[in-house]
Amino acid sequence: MSTEDNEQAGGLRSVSRTGRLRGTLAFLITCWKVNLASAMEYRASFFMMAGMMFINNFMWLFFWSLFFGKFQVVNGWEMGDVMMMWAVGAGGFGWANMLFGNFNRIAPIVAAGQLDVYLSQPKPVLLHVLASRMSLTAAGDFFFGLVVYAWVGNHSLAGLLQFLLGLLLSGLLFMGITILAGCLAFFIGNAEGLAQQVFNSFVALSTYPSDIFKGLARTLLFTLLPAGFISFLPIGLLRDFDPAFVWKAVAATLAFGALAVLAFRLGLKRYASGNAITLRG
């Protein structure tokens, strides 16, 4: 079977890898600008949602401060470590959800057949889907992370770089695990509830000091549901820099990220679309 040759078609793009990367970056920046503009269409909602999340996170820190008022040290963790755990967790979740706000909506998007528009456009589908939404509440999470770091963090250059690395790993891990769970929708249909459970468990586990878990629970925390790689960052990366832990955290982040991309690609072959009416933004 033959149709006109690609080369004859006039318009086939022979763009270099650098050109393609530059094009993708320009697309991402425009996407984020459009998301932000869309979010700011409702100014009151924007500020209220971000503000409420900021306050909500501080409420948790308040409860932890009550706890540490009674017990100064728990399994080697002090109040400052718990605060940095929240800073890294909420901050990482915040940037991921601001820039790639669809990462915890993959399951409903797939199940409702809402990938069609993304698939019909010439950009990597997963990246396009992820960047097509900005979470309003996430701005509060991210800002909360920065404020806590400014409050109790290490303000040396090394301390700042370690904190930024922590934010990066935390955000990427949140995305990897949640996308992987969301991709179940390609294989089992409506996986929205299951994906949401995985997401909630992961968020909850990342907000408790990993050293309070022992035995099987701790093993699971660093394998199947690797929230430990986020919750241990305040110790292994920020307080007592442990290269072995950091390398393992980087490897786990890359592995779960790669698994998520692979699952999404395999899933696209099974994608069944749908007839639901779809609107963007």
Binding site: V34, S38, Y42, T278
Partner: peptide
């Protein structure tokens, strides 16, 4: 190619 799906909008709804 271009594609227009009558029931799937590519326009940003709030913008």
């Amino acid at each position: 190619i271009g594609a227009v799906f009558g029931q799937k909008s590519q326009l940003w709804y709030h913008l």
